[in-house]
Write a protein that binds this DNA or RNA. Structure first.
Lengths: 344, 344
DNA sequence: GTGAAAGCGCTAACAT
DNA sequence: ATGTTAGCGCTTTCAC
């Protein structure tokens, strides 16, 4: 019956035999005491018959909707990013913001998402480097990444904890380790490599390394190659511990060790980074770095909102908040990571 | 300097000394060949100075934005729901829909989210029972839940696979099992209980059960209580296998078994449901039911969009699509789940 | 208790 | 190459 176009409050008014403003009153719930009982019923009936739904865009244009902040993460299936999102979302809602999720890996794609919507601020997590900063004058804070140009950022302070982890291995007697790196080219992984290298250097530990995609199967394959080197004492590998860039990789290493007939931790120690649920599911439980994802999101969102409020107060003045906050990572020593007795 | 109100294209036009429509042309990118080089620059400069951003609501009101579908899940940190979301999102974007995420556990909260936005359709996953259907005439499809009133739904067909799992245990020799249930009161978990009970009944297996929250720690505690019953042969528990409602629970059972000095699978078999990454991280790998989350989301979204298109074509006619699609679960036999030799 | 009318900020014909 | 104009669907005074 209907032509293509969605029914408007005018259509409802016509069918109900009332004026458009009456329809508006009824649908805003402002009708009690102002619109007659039977009139209201007539309006509601007409609306139902037409399948009328108030146009949210027009409504927001008129009254000005709640402010919206866009949260961008590269992968929402990854529980780490999901936690970041959850933490940020909670803070935003608390402060009365609507939040919209954007699942994108680079800033340019995020910019496209921002364009279509009435976004007041952007929180972008772990994006690949190299995107230009948003050209829109939208306040933005980046998480766990190099801040593009003069934008604020919140990151983990991984180096000290990772150094502590390597030192811990050294103290236990490990002298030769392998570093299983993530192929993902983001700032945090570069920092991890630097920290591991520096700590090995300082401790006089030798180090081999390889890199792989961020999933257990890739890690298993990469680790198998590493473990084929049996130049160590007792036919063991030429290293006694594998430091992984991520817990997910550690799971693959456990598998590869089993494939190679090596026992973890008796023949080989393995560590991770992230402290996701996998870390405590494996046996032995994984020694890893706890990265507080929710707190990262929450902290970033708080800074973003603070900037927004400040900006509103001072008028358009663009405060140069280039500050970089760092959240501490925490070393969690769990399963045994002692080297084989005769590792010499 | 600025008063509270955000700058509009009129403000920019005034500052740049051009008309408002010229500003519009420039910001739509439709300016090439139509607006002079220097004029464009003037407009852009004025805009930057004022911090102007085009009002997306007004723009959408005018041109009619892309259609939006809201996807609701109870918990985005849970990788299962994240996968459902991802599958649904991919289909929606493919079809040219914008997607907005709503993290809510019940239909009423979802309805609140729908109200504020220009939502054309709703896909709701695993919501608690008992919410009233959306009163807005928005097409909706529910996933993995009892369809409220005459709404379409897509669910897993768990019973056959779960029956196969119990039969498999029976065939291996298990005669007494424990069922660790989820406390969450949704349709799918009720079905799981029914299927396990029926299969045990039919096979003449005895069954004990308890329930707990959907996390490893709760499962560990609940399983410890169960495992305290050492009435089985050789001082083992009075059951030889624990069937868990979810992989996450199985992890807790592995822990509890270790706490109790029991070996999995030598002394005790454990199974899960879901096939998340945890299932292959534990040792021995978990025999479980694979639930295709992405496919659930994708299928639901396809049905939703089909309904939308159909509805548009036929005018407002509300086709009663109460159809319930069922996606098969698949039994994955992985680690050994044979009972102890002298299980009697 | 209900209606008329003036915009919200933008786009897109149509003029010039 | 730029300006004029008429709405998009709604909210909100202000009359009646």
């Amino acid at each position: 019956m209907s032509n293509g176009r969605a029914p408007t409050s005018h259509d409802v008014a016509r069918l109900a035999g009332v004026s458009q403003s009456t329809v508006s009153l009824v649908f805003r719930g402002a009708a009690s005491g102002r619109v007659g009982e039977r009139t209201q019923r007539a309006v509601l009936d007409a609306a139902r018959e037409l399948g009328f739904r108030p146009n949210a865009d027009a409504r927001r244009l008129r009254i000005g909707g709640p402010r919206m902040v866009l949260i961008a993460v590269p992968d929402i299936v990854n529980p780490f990013f999901a936690r970041v999102f959850t933490g940020a979302r909670a803070v935003a809602r608390e402060a009365g913001f609507q939040v919209v999720l954007s699942v994108q890996r680079d800033l340019d794609s995020v910019a496209a998402d921002v364009a279509g919507q009435q976004i007041d601020a952007v929180l972008a997590c772990s994006l690949e480097d190299g995107g230009r900063p948003l050209e829109d004058p939208v306040p933005a804070v980046v998480l766990d990444a190099e801040p593009p140009q003069g934008q604020g950022s919140v990151r983990f302070d991984i180096a000290p904890a990772l150094t502590a982890l390597v030192d811990h291995l050294h103290r236990l007697g490990h002298r030769r380790i392998a570093h299983l790196r993530s192929e993902v080219r983001t700032a945090t992984f570069r920092e991890r490599t630097e920290a591991v290298d520096a700590a090995c250097e300082r401790n006089g530990m030798t180090r081999v390394h390889t890199s792989c995609a961020l999933d257990p199967d890739s890690a298993r394959a990469a680790a198998s190659v590493l473990l084929a080197d049996r130049t160590g004492p007792g036919g063991r590998p030429g290293f006694t511990a594998v430091v992984c860039d991520d817990d997910v990789l550690s799971v693959g290493v456990y598998k590869a060790a089993a494939d190679a007939g090596l026992s973890v931790p008796a023949d080989l120690s393995v560590t991770g980074i992230d402290d996701v649920d996998l870390a405590t599911a494996v046996t032995p439980e994984l020694t890893t770095l706890h990265l507080p994802g929710e707190e990262l999101g929450a902290t970033g969102m708080r800074r973003l909102i603070a900037r927004l409020e400040r900006g509103a107060e001072r008028g358009g003045e663009r405060a140069a908040e280039t500050e970089c906050v760092r959240l501490p990572a925490r070393l969690l020593i769990r399963g045994s990571t002692a080297p084989p007795a005769n590792a010499g």
